[in-house]
C-alpha cells in the first residue's frame, strides 16, 4: 500500500496494464530488458512508457464481466419470455426494454432494427459499469494487491479507454449510417454544403461539419468519463479520512450516485440515439 495521500490517490487511479516494453528499458526495480517484452506494468511510469501497445486488464475484465452479466440476465429472461404472467426477472427486463423503446420511439423516427437493442445494451451495460462505483474504493483493489497485482481500478467508465471505446463504436455507426442512408456523395455533399450552401464556402463548411462530427464521440466519451472519474476521485479522497468520519461524506456521496449513475447511462444512451437519428436524416 502507498504511504502518502498523493501516492494513495495515484495508485487508485492507475490501471492494471499489460503491455510491451521496448528492449533496453530500465524497469522500476532496476533490471534492464534485453529485448522487447510483454509484461504487467509495475508502476505508472512503466504503464505510460508502454505507449499504445498495452491493455488495461482491469478495465477490459470488469467491462466484459458487466457485459456478460447483462447478456446472461437478459438472455435468460428472453429465453423464458412468456406472453402470460411474467416472472420477476421478466418483469424487470421488460421494464428496461419498454423504457428504452419509449426513448427510442420518441427520438428516432426512422426504421432500424439495430437502434433499440443498441440503446438497451448501452444503457444497461454503462449502468452496470458505472454501478461498480458503489463498491467501496479499497475493497477490490485491496484484494488485488493481496494477490500481488501492482494496481487495480474497477470502474471501466472511469477509464477513458472504456468510454472512448464505446463512443468509437457509436462513431463508426454514425459514419456507416450516414453513408448508407445518404450515399457517399450525399454525405460528402452534406459535409461540404451545410450550413452555407455556396461553393466558395466549401472549405469552411467542411471544417465546421467535420469538427461537429468529431465532437459527437468526443463529447459522449468525455462526459461519461469526466463524471465517473471525478466521482471516483472524490470517493478516494473521502477514503483518506479517518475511518470513523468517512461515512458522513461517503454515504451522501454514494446516495448522490444513485442519481448520477443511471443518469449518465441514460445520457449516453439518449445522445447515441440522437446522433444516429441525425445520421439517418437528410439535412437541408
Amino acid at each position: 500500500m502507498a504511504s502518502t495521500p498523493a501516492e494513495y490517490i495515484q495508485h487508485h487511479l492507475q490501471n492494471l496494464t499489460y503491455g510491451k516494453l521496448p528492449a533496453g528499458y530500465e524497469r522500476a526495480d532496476g533490471s534492464v530488458l534485453d529485448q522487447a517484452t510483454w509484461t504487467i506494468a509495475q508502476t505508472g511510469l512503466e504503464a505510460r512508457d508502454m505507449g499504445f501497445m498495452a491493455f488495461h486488464l482491469d478495465t477490459l475484465g470488469w467491462s466484459l464481466l458487466m457485459g456478460a452479466i447483462f447478456i446472461l440476465l437478459f438472455r435468460s429472461a428472453a429465453k423464458s419470455a412468456t406472453a402470460g404472467v411474467p416472472g420477476k426477472l421478466q418483469n424487470f427486463v421488460e421494464m428496461c426494454v419498454e423504457f428504452v423503446e419509449g426513448v427510442v420511439k420518441d427520438t428516432f423516427h426512422g426504421r432500424n432494427a439495430l437502434i433499440a437493442p443498441l440503446a438497451l445494451t448501452i444503457f444497461v451495460w454503462v449502468f452496470l459499469m458505472n454501478s461498480l462505483k458503489w463498491i467501496p474504493v479499497d475493497y477490490i483493489p485491496g484484494l488485488a494487491s493481496l494477490l500481488g497485482l501492482p494496481a487495480f481500478k474497477i470502474v471501466p467508465t472511469a477509464d477513458p479507454n472504456g468510454t472512448f471505446g464505446l463512443s468509437l463504436g457509436v462513431f463508426i455507426l454514425i459514419l456507416f449510417y450516414s453513408v448508407k442512408v445518404k450515399g457517399f456523395g450525399g454525405f460528402s455533399k452534406e459535409l461540404a454544403f451545410t450550413p452555407f450552401n455556396h461553393w466558395s464556402l466549401v472549405p469552411f463548411n467542411l471544417f465546421l461539419e467535420i469538427l461537429g462530427l468529431l465532437t459527437k464521440p468526443l463529447s459522449l466519451a468525455l462526459r461519461l468519463f469526466g463524471n465517473m472519474y471525478a466521482g471516483e476521485v472524490v470517493f478516494i479522497l473521502i477514503a483518506l479520512l479517518p475511518f470513523y468520519v468517512q461515512w458522513t461524506l461517503n454515504v451522501p456521496w454514494a446516495i448522490f450516485h444513485i442519481l448520477v449513475i443511471p443518469l449518465q447511462a441514460f445520457i449516453f444512451m439518449v445522445l447515441t440515439v440522437v446522433y444516429l437519428s441525425s445520421a439517418h436524416e437528410e439535412h437541408h
Binding site: 490501471n15 496494464t17 503491455g19 504503464a47 505510460r48 508502454m50 505507449g51 499504445f52 501497445m53 498495452a54 491493455f55 488495461h56 478495465t59 477490459l60 467491462s63 466484459l64 457485459g67 447483462f70 447478456i71 445494451t121 451495460w125 471501466p156 477509464d159 477513458p160 479507454n161 472504456g162 472512448f164 471505446g165 464505446l166 468509437l168 463504436g169 463508426i172
Partner: peptide, 16 residues
C-alpha cells in the same frame, strides 16, 4: 493512457 484497451472495448461493445 489511451491504448489498445480502446479497441478491445469497441469489439466487446459490438459483440454485446
Amino acid at each position: 493512457n489511451i491504448n489498445l484497451t480502446l479497441f478491445g472495448q469497441t469489439l466487446a461493445f459490438a459483440i454485446f
